[in-house]
Design a protein around this nucleic acid. Structure first.
Length: 423
DNA sequence: TCTCCGATTAGAC
DNA sequence: CTAACGGTCTAATCGGAGA
């Protein structure tokens, strides 16, 4: 007897950042709206109206500016505190539908609905509930594998007739084939721009083409990942739900500057902030890092200006998560790399060689260092309780010239009393 | 020849 | 008038260095 078909659902929020903004600005319901990335750089979320006007995903804002003026497109800076909070609410509701849930990204969640009776009705109810309780519209795609659930979600989004829910498992084999023949390979999860071109060169244009390609040939030309994708398209689950987020193997904190930075002290100020961020993430997952890297970058889009993008690393004899220790090393690295004749546009700190706090290799000639200093725990608690940046290292915060541009940010509606709209 | 490592590539959102 | 282009993360693969 074969195992029952899995019912993986992918729940994806529609135009997530834009939808979050609209909850508190119902007057913007019909306004073409986009949300910009950090530093107000690129478009990362678009309302349907903005899509219809031709605004592309990831497009730099300065390119869209003229079009925006002409058609009254409103652009907002991204408000991550708001999006993270709304995301938590959505994920929390979804968790009621199954004991097995994978929060895949800020706006997407896989839910194992295997064994759920009345699957279609439940899916519609789920949509309704998320919409009623949070104001966020979502679409649901169901399939026997994560890859097919993703594809089903794409169909639910694309075809209004589906009313936001599409179940691939409910199709007959003939219907499945007919459907997959109509979808371009580029829509498959794991097939990006480059691979699309290469697949096409092999005569693979549709999802169905990919599904039926001779497997060893495919494996040979495109590697294991593509083979996995193919098997998933054939209905064999190769990817399981990742219910608990695994610890990061690498942590990066970096930012483009609001304006070019030339002076070392300003750079050091920024680096200190990045260290604080990165180490806080490190401690939040109970681990320590043994390799610290710092990088600086000039503006790569300015072909007319001299370019310099150094990166320097230091391996630590003892892994640590102490911001103060990392900060001293990072400052030294920064000073080593710094050249006064360049305009820096971006910098960052990278922590790697990460191990769980309990497992670090100790030097048996030295006394064992504490895994978590009371100072750092206290700092984390204060910053959690009173907001990020309440307690800082003294090398942080004297200069603000590097801070990112955020000229169009909405209030912290859900995470700060001050952000509540007054009635 | 084998193994390890860093750099590069491709992807996701 | 000009310049204005995100941030994090993973896994696979490739090529060279060293054993």
């Amino acid at each position: 007897m074969s195992a029952p078909v899995q019912q993986f659902a992918l729940v994806d929020c529609n135009n997530f950042y834009v939808s979050c903004e609209r909850i508190f600005r119902p007057d913007l319901r019909d306004t073409p709206l986009v949300v910009l990335s950090n530093n107000d750089g690129c478009v990362v979320s678009r309302s349907n109206e903005a899509k219809a006007l031709g605004v592309k995903m990831g497009q730099p804002w300065f390119e869209v500016h003229a079009l925006a003026e002409a058609h009254g497109i409103l652009a907002l800076s991204s408000n991550y505190a708001l999006y993270a909070d709304m995301s938590n609410r959505v994920m929390c509701i979804l968790s009621e539908y199954s004991p097995r849930q994978e929060v895949y990204s800020i706006d997407e969640c896989f839910v194992d609905l295997t064994g759920t009776p009345q699957l279609k009705a439940v899916s519609y109810a789920l949509r309704e509930r998320v919409s009623a309780w949070t104001g966020i519209p979502v679409c649901v795609g169901i399939g026997p594998t994560k890859t097919l659930a993703k594809l089903a979600n794409y169909i639910a989004k694309k075809h209004p007739r589906s009313q936001g829910v599409f179940n691939y498992n409910a199709l007959s084999p003939e219907q499945q084939t007919r459907l997959l023949t109509q979808i371009a390979v580029s829509e498959v999860w794991g097939v990006g721009r480059r691979l699309t071109v290469q697949l096409q060169a092999h005569g693979i244009h549709t999802v169905q083409d990919l599904r039926v390609t001779h497997t060893p040939t495919l494996r040979n030309a495109f590697g294991v990942l593509m083979e996995k994708t193919q098997r998933e398209l054939q209905g064999t689950a190769c990817m399981d739900l990742q219910e608990a987020p695994s610890a990061k193997k690498q942590i990066i904190a970096s930012r483009s500057f609001g304006q070019p930075v030339q002076e070392l002290p300003v750079l050091q100020d920024a680096i200190s902030s990045f260290v604080a961020n990165a180490c806080a993430k490190l401690r939040a997952q109970d681990s320590q890092a043994a390799l610290i890297q710092v990088f600086l970058q000039t503006n790569r889009f300015r072909k007319d200006q001299p370019q310099y993008s150094p990166c320097l690393a230091v391996p630590l004899p003892q892994a640590t998560s102490d911001s103060l220790v990392v900060n001293r090393w990072a400052a030294a690295l920064t000073e080593r790399m710094y050249r006064p004749d360049y305009l820096y546009k971006k910098a960052g700190v990278m922590l790697s060689d990460i191990t769980p706090s309990g497992l670090q290799q100790t030097d048996w000639l030295e006394p064992e260092p504490p895994t978590q200093t009371p100072l750092m725990s206290t700092l984390d608690h204060l910053n959690q309780r009173y907001g990020r940046g309440t307690v800082k290292v003294s090398s942080q915060g004297a200069y603000s010239a590097w801070q990112m541009k955020q000229e169009r940010k909405s209030p912290h509606y859900t995470t700060d009393w001050e952000g509540l709209p007054c009635v």
